[in-house]
Simulated assay, not measured.
Amino acid sequence: MGGSAFNSLPSGSFPRIPPPVYKDLKARLSPALDRLYEYVAVPIEDPEKTDHGDLDFIVCTPRNARNLPETETDTDTAVNVPHNQVQVALGAIHSIVEDGARTSNFAVLVERGAWSSSGCSEEEERAREAVESGEIFYQVDVHVCADKDDWDRVVYFHSYGDLGMIQGLVTRNVGLVLGVNGLKYPNPPHPTLILNQDFDRISIFFGWSSERRNAGFTSRQQIFEWVIESRFFDPKSFRTSGQGISRVKAQRTMYSDFVVWVNARSESTDMEEVKHRQERVRKEALIEFGRLEEVENYMREFEARKILKTTFNGSVVKGWTELGNNWRGVKVVMDMVRERHGGEEGLLQIYLLEGEEGLKERVMKAFQESGLSS
């Protein structure tokens, strides 16, 4: 809902914006931001959206930053045009600003009679009647991106309404995560791995035609049909809720419409088949994006570290050396082994190559040389 950022203004100050008014507003304000930023875009709208809560601009690379001496270019200057310049360019009266690669909100006053040129005079009057002062505003959000690559991803993911979130639902079904930062490989409790950030490459992997998407959609039906063209969409195992799938706010009407639409085409879900399918696709994704060896090595080392904790510890070393309750002696031996063999990392490599026997051999050698064996 437009205006949600401006709690200090009266309720109703930010009416829903009719599509013709929204189109004219976008055409009027885009050139103003073009003069400040090298890259400016408004994500393509949901083709069936009946009104708009606000106008979202995605921007990056201030035009004046490239003209500044390197010594005068700090992080904020390189990313943000000064907020007061943006406010003046938009003709905003109020603002809530954020530095860095974040979103700032601007309240732009609707001049009386402004909607008449768009054929929406009656809607404007009704909106003004809902506010005691009669003053109404547009909320204009300016999301600043860190660089051109970030800008490309944000514009892609937020185009066509909830399409990015719907694509994310498809990826969740096969055990992956798609978001504004690209395709990720979740592997809890381990760190999440970013597989790829190029949406064209990701689309090829999933079987989504970028050519068809770039040609444009004229209805939600077309968008939904494009989504299920993915080679990983299977009506026998597709879920719209449950473990691993986040709940989405009810006002996401396009997403909600997709859930209803796809559920009517889905069949009963075999959870065992879902699990096996996720395993297959997750491995395929690692292979496709060249990360399989990295993940396998990481998991092998992770498991080895767990085993190492149960193999190289005071109790085990005490048993090998038969030092009884001489815990100080046990510590001396363990410290000698660590120092000689590169600490925990070195011991891990010994364990990976030679197993428990390799560790025991080093321990017993240190024990003999420590003088504690006599």
Rank of each mutant, 00 (worst) to 15 (best):
S30I: 12
N105K: 05
G12H: 06
N173R: 07
F289T: 02
W151N: 00
V260A: 14
P31M: 07
A32Y: 01
L323T: 02
H52P: 08
K249Q: 12
E296M: 13
R282P: 01
F302L: 10
A366M: 07
V108I: 07
E211Y: 12
R35T: 14
A127C: 05
E301T: 10
L348H: 01
K360C: 02
K275A: 15
R280P: 05
E288R: 14
F137V: 01
N84D: 14
Y22L: 09
S203C: 11
R265M: 12
F14V: 05
G342W: 00
I287S: 06
L176T: 01
E303Q: 13
L183I: 10
G182S: 09
I96V: 14
F302V: 11
L286G: 07
V144L: 04
D76T: 15
L178F: 14
K148R: 14
Q221T: 15
K331N: 11
P62Y: 07
A92R: 06
K309G: 15
K26G: 11
A285S: 10
E111S: 12
G216Q: 08
I202D: 00
P43V: 12
F312G: 04
S219P: 12
V131S: 03
I202H: 02
F233I: 07
G164S: 06
E322D: 12
G346L: 00
N214Y: 14
S104K: 03
T269I: 15
G207R: 02
T321R: 01
I307W: 04
L178D: 02
S241P: 00
V177G: 00
E301W: 04
V248T: 13
V330M: 04
E124A: 08
A32G: 02
N67E: 15
E301G: 12
S266N: 11
L195Q: 08
E225I: 09
F233K: 00
F206Y: 09
V88L: 13
L176S: 00
W115R: 04
G242V: 09
M334P: 05
N196G: 03
T103G: 00
K318S: 15
F106H: 03
G324A: 07
P20V: 10
L176I: 07
V86I: 15
G3L: 11
K306R: 13
L193N: 02
V86R: 05
F157G: 02
V317P: 02
S8I: 13
H52C: 09
Q278A: 07
A250C: 03
N196K: 09
S121F: 09
P82Q: 08
D162I: 06
Q243V: 14
G91M: 07
K184I: 11
Q251N: 14
G91Y: 03
F233S: 03
M299I: 10
A114R: 04
S118I: 04
I17G: 04
I223M: 15
G216D: 08
G242T: 08
G355S: 09
